[in-house]
Design a protein around this nucleic acid. Structure first.
Lengths: 140, 140
DNA sequence: TCTTAGATAAGAATAATTCTCATATAAGAA
DNA sequence: TTCTTATATGAGAATTATTCTTATCTAAGA
């Protein structure tokens, strides 16, 4: 797997301490962190890195395809450093967002949309969002 | 189908002109409007309704289950007045969000997750988000 | 018509993100 | 190794989006 520096080089970006710090934060905060979580994390070890810089670097990484923005209905930006095809579990209790990977599911959805052909709409991506909660099994 | 007033009454809310205006806006702006779109729409005909009131009424409607928040990766709140089970098409060009309804898809997903049983995670809702674009067919 | 619990207006406050521009610096050239 | 310069960053102001506060208004039951 690429190192952080190699990733930057591979997309034509200069290696700066601030960018390395952001990438580290994204990898260590595994749970699709919000901008605020990333900022807090970074400022613990790099208190001099400006908030504006972090936002700018995050936007740059999204633009370069190094990370992706995550959909939420909370009105805050969250980020995903895992680029491989996956879906998300949204814990309605904790707010946690967990990756869900299953190739069978991907095939199922792909087949369905090849059959169904949503008229006039060219599909680029299919994301499944599962809302639920951990552990407390509903007794239905 | 319920009228706006009946909807309010059915969830124990008083009928106020501001609430009626918000409901009208939600029904007329069919495309999962952002808070800003709703505010702009309402202030054309009700310039005296305060922005804070609109936000408060929207939150109240979400809390009462009259409308729902829509997931986006844009960091702004958008709302959905259609409560029936459906999925969304996200147009990556226009930003438009369109409802997608297909019972077969719902059955497919339900069956899949009954077989798969995501360990320790109690599913409340399954939402499919299709990202793509209209009309310009990709020549693959 | 009166009463009052709850709703709203207005704008201040907060939170999240973007912008500006002087200064710093990564990295290629010499 | 030093120099150069195109690009990056810091700092905080500005903007945008949303929430809070509280005096006043009002929906609807009595």
């Amino acid at each position: 797997m690429y190192s952080d520096k190699n990733t930057l080089i591979s997309v034509g970006l200069k290696i700066t301490p601030q960018r390395i710090a952001v990438m580290e934060a994204l990898h260590k905060l595994k749970s699709h962190p919000s901008a605020e979580m990333i900022i807090s994390f970074i400022q613990k070890s790099h208190p001099h890195i400006a908030v504006g810089t972090i936002y700018k670097v995050l936007d740059l990484f999204v633009a370069k395809g190094i990370i992706r923005k995550v959909m939420t209905d909370k009105g805050v930006m969250r980020y995903d450093s895992v680029l491989d095809k996956h879906h998300h579990l949204y814990c309605s209790e904790s707010g946690e967002i967990i990756d869900y990977v299953d190739e069978e599911l991907d095939v199922l959805l792909k087949d369905y949309f090849e059959r169904k052909k949503v008229t006039g709409f060219s599909i680029e991506e299919i994301n499944l969002h599962l809302i639920g909660s951990y552990n407390k099994k509903k007794k239905e």
